[in-house]
Design a protein around this nucleic acid. Structure first.
Length: 261
DNA sequence: CTCTATGTTTAATT
DNA sequence: GAATTAAACATAGA
């Protein structure tokens, strides 16, 4: 689920469910310790209990739940994380590892963090964590600036797709958006990042915009939203050539050998 | 049984 | 230092 658009959708839900409410209980299961990096169940619980939620912000794939007293809870969904709203008496969800009980007036609800693979993170802190501070511009929050992107790309020799997925270059770009954007831009994912011309960067900005808008239009759901991601071996939607599948930076990549040369 | 997966970090190697 | 690669994390689904 979680790339930039998916995380933004979760953020909106989480903010709607929690803003203005007070955390009256924190429950963590036996598997939650893996999510609290750094942290411990006891400290996490102690830090959150009794605090009111002021809002939820997001940069890239990180969310920041802002609480009274300057406390912040950072949430990363990893590969399979999600937050859901449930009645306080509802049974635990499959793969539910953390639960916040929230009181707004006399009504108590629960938001639950579910994550079967537990690659996600939950970090309570009084300052912004390094992972948050080091994030580059967020395409949804900050827009895309061709000049600064060009400067970032020029500073490294890695393959273009690897640089795009570097969260300090742009925050929130994952394997899906990177793959789709490069196809839209007709750029070879293997080309050296510092070899991108001004025209290439312009095409890339457009590709990213198109790919992100497509994610938004589909609500981050359904395989139909993918033009090339996961479609190696199928015909290119643009020129009908057979899409190639390669590995870059340890991630599978689909590309059209004809129009992304 | 095998293979793959929307993410990140770390270690080893070039 | 920079870049590359593989492995690790843990689980579900095809």
């Amino acid at each position: 689920m979680p790339e930039l658009v998916d995380v933004e959708i979760v953020r909106r839900h989480l903010q709607r469910w929690t803003r203005g409410a007070t955390i009256v209980d924190v429950d963590l299961d036996a598997g939650a310790h893996r999510l609290l990096r750094p942290g411990s169940p006891a400290a996490f619980r102690r830090t959150l209990l009794g605090r009111r939620v002021r809002g939820v912000s997001r940069r890239g794939k990180w969310m920041r739940i802002e609480l009274d007293g300057g406390v912040r809870v950072f949430s990363h969904l990893g590969m399979t994380g999600d937050w859901v709203l449930r009645d306080r008496h509802a049974a635990p969800e499959p793969s539910e590892h953390a639960r916040l009980s929230l009181r707004r007036g006399r009504v108590v609800t629960t938001v639950r963090y579910c994550d079967p693979r537990r690659f996600g993170r939950l970090v309570a802190a009084r300052d912004d964590i390094d992972e948050w501070r080091e994030l580059g511009p967020d395409p949804l929050n900050d827009g895309l600036d061709a000049q600064s992107l060009a400067a970032s790309l020029a500073s490294t020799r890695r393959p273009l797709k690897v640089a795009l997925m570097d969260q300090t270059v742009l925050a929130g770009i994952g394997n899906i958006v990177a793959t789709e954007a490069l196809w839209v831009a007709r750029l070879d994912p293997r080309m050296r990042s510092d070899a991108a011309t001004t025209a290439d960067v312009r095409a890339l900005v457009r590709g990213l915009t198109v790919a992100i808008e497509r994610e938004v239009a589909f609500g981050g759901e359904g395989d139909e939203r993918f033009r090339v991601y996961g479609r190696a071996g199928e015909p290119c939607p643009r020129c009908e050539a057979k899409l190639a599948g390669i590995v870059l930076g340890g991630r599978t990549t689909a590309l059209c050998p004809r129009c992304q040369a």
